[in-house]
Design a protein around this nucleic acid. Structure first.
Lengths: 309, 309
DNA sequence: TTGTATGCGTTATCAT
DNA sequence: ATGATAACGCATACAA
């Protein structure tokens, strides 16, 4: 009955009498209109995809929360997809999401290249979060290079003479950016800046601490992210090395746990929640105003000084 | 063309010639069948809802990961809904999910009563995770009472004479269960067992430490969850109180950070990832075999002894 | 083995 | 102001 449709959508002419009756019956039958049928006719499913490496990772779970909150505000539902940093899984999920006619996808920390993404997405709106676009796609990011620079400079200003970097994985643009910033800060003072590679995980930081000790302890270390920094703190603890007495430590991300440990961790804040929120807003622009000009939102990394330095 | 449908679903008779041609064309056009249209005709959307208080909470993000993994394995997509422990939001999301024709809902740590849930869901399959059912609905849970008992008994066995409990919120069945276990263990030794209320958050544990100090420090504290325990560790640290020298501390959950801090936290493990995974499996039973007999899966709380005791 | 018709629940267009 | 009809994309039942 089209009259029903009219009262539901509040469109067209409906006598107040009919409206009353329809509303009454809807109450009685607990009637909920089918978004599936609606989607089929309108092409709009009011759903978006969230492609993210791992929701159980503290930084990403913050991002995810920001995304879901913003989406919810816009009346959009979020379909959660964990890719585990695997390109293959990214592609698989994208196919599924396309089949579901999501209105767009928020891609967080993707491993696939932008070309791959664009090719597979074939026109479906999407935004990159935690990643800068080199093509012309909407994205939300922070200047990792600057963040790495700030972190390292802080170490130097605190009087460190031998600084080191525990870098994230080489296939992560964020990790590489931070490393670049580290190198720039180090070059400015004509210091040497050694680094070792990790994988952004706690265990990786823990293990790094061992290797570092073999090479002789530096007086300042910039960890590529907070999880590795936590690992280093834990390792240092068991080794009887004191922070900040024996060396200063700076992390990256400012996950909540950075201020929940001892020593509280000096770190470079990345506003995960906000970045997620912004991502959805940009995506919504794309969705609403068609394939207009992509926008990007850049956040500034911010040093948060705590007890580890 | 129904032949196309036949090759996609691999049903009915199709000459290998036609199959070849169809597949070829599908490749060329990057054809992806619409799950929306499919859902409309079959009534199956291959989507489930995930209603959870807060994905950015470490325990819940573990659960969420388990759920998404299991769902993905079963070919189900997960729609993420954060309720913030608000009954109102739970209801709102449920309505949305119903409109989307999800095949079922995994309800994690709900605040709504089972009656409310059943009433709003009106027949839609759902399972409770992190909550025991008093009605007849599928659920995955651990024995919180036993967990609380184990934690407290551990304290006693370690020689504590005056134990305390920092409880979670009164409207949380988990919190109350753990408290009950605490009381039972205390009663067995005819000890007094004071407690104060918290809200399961870090700040709450931090604040609790202050109040506890006013009443005179006990020699053993059982915190209602790990987040509060972390808050207490942090507060103790700033107050110059040493753990486990000045008092022993046991948490609950075993979130990963429990072993990432100093002192590493003795805690009662709750297998969040597994519980999420099981939840989906039970839900799938409900979905597949109609409204058959609900099942429940109980996990045993397990004491993990670390340095805080 | 293949094509045609019908219906899923909703909305938009057209008649009434 | 309201009802009838077509269409969305697919799968099923039926006819060829």
């Amino acid at each position: 009955m089209s009259t029903v449709s009219r009262v539901i959508n509040d469109t067209g002419y409906v006598s107040s009498d009919s409206r009353q009756r329809v509303m009454k019956v809807m109450e009685e039958l607990h009637f909920t209109p089918s978004n599936v049928a609606r989607g089929l006719v309108s092409g709009k499913t009011s759903s978006i995809g969230l492609l993210i490496p791992d929701v159980s990772n503290p930084f990403f779970s913050d991002v995810a929360r920001g995304i879901e909150d913003a989406a919810s505000t816009l009346g959009l539902s979020v379909i959660l997809c964990n890719s585990d940093w695997k390109i293959e899984r990214e592609q698989t999920y994208i196919d599924i999401l396309k089949g579901k006619w999501v209105e767009g996808i928020v891609v967080v920390g993707a491993r696939s290249s932008e070309q791959q993404l664009q090719s597979v997405l074939s026109g479906l709106p999407f935004v990159l979060v935690d990643q800068r676009s080199t093509q012309n796609v909407s994205c939300v990011w922070i200047d990792n290079e600057l963040g790495g620079y700030i972190a390292t400079k802080h170490l130097v200003e605190r009087g460190c003479k031998r600084v080191m970097h525990v870098r994230g994985p080489a296939n992560s643009p964020s990790a590489m950016g931070r490393h670049q910033g580290f190198l720039r800060a180090v070059a400015e003072r004509t210091m040497s800046g050694k680094f070792i590679s990790g994988n952004f995980r706690f265990e990786s930081g823990y293990a790094a601490m061992g290797k570092i000790l073999d090479d002789g302890l530096p007086d300042g270390i910039f960890a590529g992210n907070d999880m590795m920094a936590l690992g280093m703190i834990q390792a240092a603890q068991t080794m009887g090395i004191k922070i900040p007495q024996d060396f200063l430590l700076v992390g990256f991300d400012d996950i909540s746990f950075s201020s929940y440990i001892s020593p509280t961790l000096t770190t470079v804040r990345q506003p995960g929640y906000l970045m997620g929120k912004s991502g959805v807003e940009l995506l919504n622009q794309q969705i609403a105003y068609g394939h207009s000009k992509p926008q990007s939102r850049e956040y500034q990394p911010e040093l948060v000084v705590r007890n580890s330095t």
